[in-house]
Design a protein around this nucleic acid. Structure first.
Lengths: 147, 147
DNA sequence: CTTTATGCAAAGCCTTTGCATATCT
DNA sequence: AGATATGCAAAGGCTTTGCATAAAG
């Protein structure tokens, strides 16, 4: 699922703003993150293609793209990560040990949300939940060390 | 549930460290947060009782209390919040509109975690999940405005 | 041609750190 | 006395902002 399939220029112009090379390059960099990219990673990728682009432009562009709902942000370990907005809400499993991340669909959590709404009258609005824990590989190592 | 019921001084000394007025005041300030307190709120409360206590001491003390598992921290909207460690893992529902927070037990989410472990081999280790959404009152307002 | 976007540099904010002093056991 | 904890001030890292210039429609 590439971001190429979306008419970003059109959606930006539809709001009365302009498409620029910088915005395109930042969008590409976010997309290259495969789901979750830090500012540093984005800046590094941007810098490869266009060393002249300023860091503050990257910040401003990401802010801008979020307002148009083309990019979404999430907090992970206190760091902000960015990714291309997808039609499907989804979540992440982040391994505390190896740092690996697994993307999961919303299905697993939907039932839980419904239950919370029913019990607390609270409408959970989560597009981008990050659950921490230990992945399969690291669990195996942990089990060895604990013995 | 007050933190008074726990022998903090004892637990601190058991690790070879010292109980000090500063640490006691910071602990009180965290406890006064009723579940989730920002650094600023903690510093404000500390300052009321003892204006001389330095901000860096508060940072160091919180770091210290976390290492002893007397205080736990979580990220909420990019801000670090602190609370007294409880025996029971629990989570928060944070309303995006009014900022209200509801504390919920782990029970609602346990089944979901089990399912994730089964399906992905990923062991979710969440002591302090924060779910964003809209509380009952704000949902009612939203419904009105949307019509 | 007008408005929006960018680059640069500087300011801001929050957090951490080094070091001398004070405090606890 | 010996070790730990604190206060102060300064440094650090990341993000935001003001302003002049450049570029898009």
């Amino acid at each position: 699922m590439s971001h190429q399939s979306i008419d970003y220029a059109g959606r930006i112009r539809a709001h009365g703003y302009r498409m620029t090379p910088q915005r395109e390059i930042v969008l590409d960099a976010v997309c290259a993150g495969e789901g979750h990219t830090t500012i540093d990673a984005i800046c590094a990728r941007v810098h490869e293609r266009a060393p002249v682009i300023n860091r503050s432009t990257v910040y401003r562009t990401l802010e801008f793209l979020q307002q148009l709902n083309l990019v979404v942000a999430a907090d992970i370990h206190g760091q902000t990560i960015y990714e291309i907005a997808q039609a499907q809400p989804h979540h992440h499993l982040a391994c505390l040990q190896c740092g690996d991340e697994i993307e999961i669909s919303n299905d697993e959590l939907e039932a839980t949300y419904a239950e919370i709404t029913e019990r607390y009258g609270f409408d959970v609005e989560v597009d981008h939940l990050v659950l921490y824990g230990f992945c399969q590989g690291c669990r195996a190592h942990k089990a060895q060390n604990d013995s």
